[in-house]
């Protein structure tokens, strides 16, 4: 646990001083929002139905930007090799990275949500208090698998391309759940309960899977 805390604190401090990840994510998400607004007419009624998909696609793409940088930093000066030979448990490192990415993406979402509301005239017709739950569960689903696959694609050629290729197919059910939950809350037409439960189950299963298999991926040589 102390290793998790130390690595997380280190990553957050690095990010706080450089602001590399958050700046690139923010700008990227902003571009996606603007480009999407050209591809259809953002009137209130229309946009309420598609906003769920739009918001999550923007976050998904932006998250990949941050996820790609997760491990790249550790490659310099062979930091990752040092982790590997140290007796520290691999999962502590994984959790630190996943929490770090989670915080980055949550900050991004907190900053982008007002923009979405302004640009697309959004107002939730359903229970709005469920939105943060969907946001947190959905972000964790993206980030936990993303951190794992980023470690995996580290070992491939052209790793920046590899990450989305691995992450997106596995994430399809989670993305569907996030989009449907968000749309159902925004339109208030049906309940988001099923999707929230599905997302929670997805989170539990894949977090367990990552923790079981991360050591293998870290040490694959």
């Amino acid at each position: 646990m102390s290793l998790t805390r130390a690595t997380l604190a280190k990553d957050l401090r690095l990010e706080w001083r450089s602001k590399d990840a958050i700046n690139s994510m923010l700008f990227f998400a902003l571009l996606v929002v603007v480009i999407f607004s050209f591809s259809f007419d953002p009137t209130a009624e229309e946009s309420r139905h598609i906003a769920g998909g739009l918001v999550w696609v923007a976050f998904l793409f932006a998250a990949v930007v941050a996820l790609n940088q997760t491990w790249a930093r550790e490659l310099r000066n062979q930091v990752l090799d040092a982790y590997r030979v140290s007796p520290a448990p691999a999962n502590a490192l994984f959790l630190a990275k996943a929490f770090g990415n989670f915080i980055f993406v949550i900050v991004l979402e907190a900053l982008m949500t007002p923009l979405f509301i302004i640009f697309y005239n959004l107002r939730a017709l359903g229970p709005a208090w469920q939105l943060p739950i969907v946001g947190a569960l959905g972000t964790w689903a993206l980030v936990v698998n993303g951190t794992f696959f980023a470690a995996m694609s580290l070992r491939t050629r052209s790793r920046e391309i590899m990450l989305p290729l691995l992450l997106f197919p596995i994430s399809i059910p989670a993305v569907l759940a996030m989009v449907e939950a968000t749309s159902s809350i925004l339109t208030g037409e049906y309940s988001a309960k099923f999707w929230i439960v599905l997302l929670a189950a997805y989170d539990v299963v894949f977090t367990t899977g990552c923790l079981f298999l991360f050591e293998i991926v870290l040490n694959a040589e």
Binding site: L165, L166, A220
Partner: peptide, 25 residues
């Protein structure tokens, strides 16, 4: 794709992990 792109020594391990993830999915 993963098998195609990963460098030879680690392919088997990474691919096996991905297969388990696919099954979980």
């Amino acid at each position: 794709m993963l098998r195609r792109f990963s460098s030879s020594g680690q392919t088997a391990m990474l691919a096996a992990t991905l297969s388990v993830f696919g099954a979980l999915c």
